[in-house]
């Protein structure tokens, strides 16, 4: 329960952030969706033992975070909620892959720890990129962008409607849980039978609401073809943003900047 409620709270926070104004916010949502997709692909395309190679990619979230006016605390919170989940499978790596692959001073590092570290970095990068996309664009605009990039209209419509009703139904759900809690005096466990009746009532209410919404949609000319407002316009800035991101990612992926910088530095200090 707390997780969903926390999640709903986060929806709210993200919506507020998305309503801000910044150069990132002003970009066409499609540009941001494309850039995010490129970024995610780049991150996961690195070798599983790569750690240093991933580091330059942190520049992307760092820039978006600051230019897009997203508070660090929001990002950290999001990462904290998500991390146990992402680390679950990765945590086996150090146990299973114990071959020492690197000796650095007296310290031996096994391949498992390397790949585990890489999983952690991947997680941090991918989750940050998704959060920043939402915080700088807004869910609704992301959906519209997906629609314009070719997702089926019925699917984007469903994305929008789901988002709208999550707030109403989770509110109804929590009122119901509260009412049940008040009368069970904390003693009764919620058995599956009780759950079935609670959730069943909620389902019927949702169903009836669905019928009422249906009437309201019909009354405003809905005929089963989802149509949504299209406002954004692709501009030169958007092209520049996508190209810039692509260039940066290509450089990081293929240009080996870490190695070059590292060897250069080591060379200078020797």
């Amino acid at each position: 329960m707390t997780r969903i409620e926390a999640g709903i709270g986060d929806l709210d926070t993200l919506d507020r952030l998305a309503a801000q104004d910044s150069p990132i916010h002003r970009l066409d949502p499609r540009a941001k969706v494309i850039a995010t997709a490129l970024f995610l692909l780049t991150v996961v395309s690195f070798s599983k033992y790569d750690i240093a190679g991933l580091t330059p990619l942190f520049l992307y979230p760092a820039v978006l975070l600051t230019v897009g006016l997203v508070p660090v605390r929001v990002l950290l919170r999001y990462l904290l909620i998500a991390c146990p989940f992402a680390l679950l499978v990765g945590v086996f790596n150090p146990l299973l892959d114990r071959e020492i692959v690197v000796r650095w001073g007296g310290l031996g590092i096994s391949g498992g720890w390397l790949s585990f570290g890489s999983i952690v970095l991947r997680f941090l990068l991918t989750a940050s990129a998704v959060l920043l996309l939402l915080a700088c664009t807004g869910y609704v605009a992301v959906c519209a962008a997906l629609g314009r990039l070719g997702a089926p209209h019925l699917l984007t419509m469903q994305f929008l409607m789901l988002y709208r009703f999550i707030f109403i139904l989770t509110d109804e759900g929590s009122r119901m849980v509260r009412a049940h809690g008040l009368r069970s005096f904390g003693a009764g466990r919620t058995t599956i039978r009780v759950w079935g009746s609670l959730a069943g009532h909620l389902l019927l209410r949702a169903y009836d609401r669905g019928l009422r919404v249906h009437a309201a949609m019909l009354a405003r000319g809905f005929d089963g073809t989802p149509r949504t407002l299209r406002v954004s316009r692709w501009s030169l800035t958007d092209t520049a943003f996508v190209l810039g991101c692509g260039l940066f990612l290509a450089l990081v992926r293929f240009g080996d900047p870490v190695d070059r910088l590292g060897s250069w530095c080591v060379g200078v200090f020797r």
Binding site: Y139, V140, L160, M161, Y163, R164, F165, I168, R209, R212, V213, A215, A216, M217, A219, T228, L229
Partner: peptide, 17 residues
Amino acid sequence: TVFQDPNDQLFMPTVEE
């Protein structure tokens, strides 16, 4: 038609839409 519960009527995610 303006329905009784505005929550049923406002089904899009923003007022404008």
